[in-house]
Design a protein around this nucleic acid. Structure first.
Lengths: 340, 340
DNA sequence: TTGAAAGCGTTACCAT
DNA sequence: ATGGTAACGCTTTCAA
């Protein structure tokens, strides 16, 4: 039925005033432009009466900014990313921004394509978990003066804002913990990845085992979604063929889920036979029996800083876009799975 | 540096042709408009050379459609919604649509406000898990000829497309299952909610216990996020004060998580002391020890049908927007938690 | 204190 | 076969 999109023009006509006047009032510039009280009131009342909403599209076109931020992650269904999504949504909407999400599956060509299609939508900013090799594309974004902030991992060679966590020292701490509770043959299960977050987690682990001169075994699986069974099988095989392991450090929580399943199949008793710690805490780790020790990333703070950084870059008053590089601290939760 | 936003006008000027010509070629109407091969090629080459991308904003303004679909759910960080998000994203992007998400927290005024701000962005469609009392707002959307499809729950009084699951019969089946494995005092833990999905789940449960003349106890907790501790405490109290229960049916998976924690605190042995089934399967249910029986919703099919319905409504060739009402089947997974 | 008009980047009708 | 131009809905400068 109602196909009528009332525009500012209709309002002007209906009230017998000019478009300009309406626009000024709409934008709260009535005072500034010294428009009479009665005029202001008349227009405002009418606007409220017919429930007029200005077209954001037209505004965007005119002003060159769309008030849209892209949230580009590895996989939006991953609990970590979904949680961040929820938190940044809150702050974005509060500041008049909307969020478009997309998942890259850590596939660079997909990421490049996505970014390209977003550019033609004139989005204002990007929050990105970069895929390997995305450097040139991010630099391009920066050159075009768009707001961008990376998270979870960063790019050593690109001068771009980021919010990451202390991967290395947390890994070190967790590994030390395993050693302290008596582990002497520690396995590290991680992803085949050259990205900063994984490298750092590995380095932290390695330094701890090296320092303590403890045996260790590293196992890398290909990037995969939790739905794919292949990785689970591989982990099972690894665990099976390394029966001497008395401690395991999982580099991500879904690797831990897969590993726990494998350990259960092998009838390993946690923590008696083998102790377990995982990177990236999860609701289920406290629920699991035994509860699983894990390194918790400060989700809320990550989200806060991410939006803070983006909003600061989007702030028109600031001439120079500030490059903020933040490394946040994690918290190791020691639970039953690694009790001595 | 590069602040130049090349427009169609620049291209026309650079090539010494008219804007119209460029536009036609851009839109693949070269043939139709009988533009010469060489002209077409010249323009296309130039476009490729400078890497020109048309402004989607301007196109949207002109064409009155933004190619954006809103995905409005209760909480995007909830695994169920996050998974659907991932699946619809795939299909949306493939069809040239982007997805903006937002969470309502099941708060109607928040939902109304969100919808209102989206309207001024001229989004094309809405995929919504409606909050209670959202009927008038949804009807308004429909009146304005926007594409909308509800999911997870629906509105009996509104003639709107939806994709939901068979809540009642699945609940019935799961409850029957508990009875068959010997439960005679069954608890039903659900949310205080008048929405269709919860009502149906309750009805299925009730019919099963009534039919079999089995004792039962219903407990309702307020809507909450999993982070809030209050509900957990309440569930613990309920379980504690009803020691005779030998079976529990949780109406959602996060209620089950909270309940499992409570049962663990009470040192109840599952399935020996009490058997457990939950609505809405979760990766963690198979991982838990004992594994938890659960009703799995067909996520992929839900997502497929949702997009199918939206895209059909968005199809310009179809004059009448078809109203599709779909009820999909679930699958009960019987696991250790309810073995006889 | 208010209004006219240019312009944001497109599309598509109507000319030529 | 190609080009001119109005219109989409808005903001903002300049003029009155």
């Amino acid at each position: 039925m109602a196909k009528k999109k009332t525009s500012i023009k209709d309002i002007a006509k209906a009230l017998g005033v000019s478009i300009t006047t309406v626009s000024f009032i709409l934008n709260g510039k009535a005072k500034e432009k010294r428009i009479s009280e009665e005029m202001t009131k008349k227009v405002q009342d009418y606007i409220k009466e017919i429930g007029y909403k200005p077209s954001h599209l037209a505004q965007s076109l005119r002003l060159g900014k769309s008030k849209v931020i892209v949230f580009m992650v590895e996989d939006i269904s991953n609990q970590f990313f979904a949680s961040i999504a929820r938190l940044i949504e809150e702050k974005a909407y509060k500041n008049g921004y909307k969020i478009i999400y997309c998942s890259t599956d850590n596939d660079t060509s997909k990421a490049i394509e996505l970014i390209s299609t977003f550019k033609m939508r004139s989005v204002d900013g990007f929050i990105i978990t970069p895929t390997p090799g995305l450097e040139p594309t991010v630099e391009e974004l920066l050159d075009e003066n768009l707001a961008v902030v990376l998270f979870d991992r960063w790019m050593p060679d690109v001068e771009c804002s980021y919010v990451v966590v202390e991967n290395k020292s947390s890994s070190f701490e967790a590994t030390r913990h395993l050693i302290e509770v008596g582990c002497r043959n520690i396995g590290f299960i991680t992803l085949e990845s050259n990205q900063t977050q994984m490298i750092d987690r590995f380095n932290g682990f390695e330094q701890a085992v090296r320092d303590a001169e403890v045996n260790h075994e590293v196992f890398k699986v290909k990037f995969h979604t939790i739905a794919e069974q292949e990785a689970s099988t591989k982990i099972l095989e690894f665990l099976e063929s390394n029966p001497e392991l008395d401690g395991i450090f999982f580099a991500t929580n879904y690797l831990a889920f897969e590993g726990l399943q494998a350990l259960s199949k092998l009838h390993k008793n946690i923590p008696h036979d083998i102790k377990v710690v995982s990177f990236d805490d999860h609701y289920f780790f406290s629920l699991y029996n035994p509860s699983i020790s894990a390194i918790e990333q400060p989700l809320e703070e990550i989200a806060d800083r991410l939006m803070e950084s983006i909003l600061k870059q989007l702030d028109e008053n600031l001439v120079e876009k500030p490059v903020q590089k933040l490394v946040l601290n994690n918290k190791l939760h020691i639970r039953e799975s690694s009790r001595g």
